[in-house]
């Protein structure tokens, strides 16, 4: 496969970036998208050119470290799939691909396609937890949790914190990310004591980090690799209004 790539190159957070044109001549349908970039980087290195920086770690779609825009879509064209699990057979020989980093004020570019997502950590630090010091827990079966509730909590808890929701949102809102954590913990009986404080603090913090507002558009839901539903945002809204 031959592909034409337009990749965002940016040396550092303060420097201007631009799209640079590359030809990927040795792509193969069985490669993952990141492996295609690995091969490109090997070629660039041998030519003495700076390889393209991009984040990835587990490469099995669970750690949430990878992610960028492919032709204007976060994580590319396959639904429910991170770029590390996206394979080149999804593309055609001769395709032209535009590859850009997540863009949001809260996610400043570090280099090329790698962005700083520590704002997400700070939203969690603001209240995305249940305060239970090690050693203080009662027996696991003391509080029974109906299976459907546990399943619903698990749906929300599946978030991998990749940032695709923010990247796809026209408002660069972190509502899906924040809502997912609020829904996960708010659904469980263990999460009740801190429920009000949690939603107040986390929402306030997401604004502090300069994420935008949610306008119920649904782009986040469409690109979420874990297919988390807009419902979690409604839940966050409800909890927030109630807690205010």
């Amino acid at each position: 496969m031959r592909l034409t790539l337009h990749i965002w190159r940016q040396k550092g957070p303060k420097e201007p970036g631009r799209m640079v044109h590359y030809e990927a001549r040795n792509a193969n349908p069985d490669m993952s998208f990141l492996e295609m970039l690995d091969v490109l980087n090997e070629e660039l290195t041998l030519k003495g050119e700076d390889p393209v920086a991009f984040d990835s770690d587990c490469r099995e779609g669970i750690c949430g470290m990878c992610g960028f825009m492919i032709n204007g879509v976060a994580h590319g064209p396959r639904r429910g799939t991170t770029v590390c699990q996206l394979h080149m057979r999804k593309f055609k020989d001769g395709d032209v691909l535009y590859i850009e980093p997540w863009r949001a004020r809260a996610f400043p570019v570090i280099k090329d396609l790698a962005v700083n997502r520590t704002a997400f950590d700070r939203i969690i630090a603001a209240g995305g937890y249940i305060s239970v010091p090690a050693g203080s827990a009662p027996d696991g079966n003391t509080i029974l949790i109906p299976k459907p509730v546990a399943e619903q909590a698990m749906d929300a808890a599946a978030c991998i914190g990749c940032g695709a929701c923010v990247a796809a949102c026209p408002n660069a809102s972190a509502a899906l990310f924040t809502g997912a954590k609020i829904a996960h913990l708010g659904l469980l009986p263990q999460g009740q004591p801190e429920r009000d404080q949690r939603v107040l603090k986390m929402v306030a913090h997401s604004t502090l980090e300069q994420f935008g507002s949610c306008t119920n558009i649904g782009e986040c839901e469409a690109v979420c690799p874990k297919e988390i539903k807009l419902e979690v945002i409604a839940r966050m809204n409800r909890d927030f209004i109630k807690a205010s």
Binding site: S136, A137, D139, G140, M154, G191
Partner: peptide, 22 residues
């Protein structure tokens, strides 16, 4: 055994039976 208790208390959504037990 303590680990499971700790994680449940933290809100780890372990799989449950219909009766609500782990």
């Amino acid at each position: 055994v303590n680990i499971i208790d700790q994680c449940v208390a933290q809100g780890v959504p372990f799989a449950r039976e219909y009766g609500g037990t782990l």
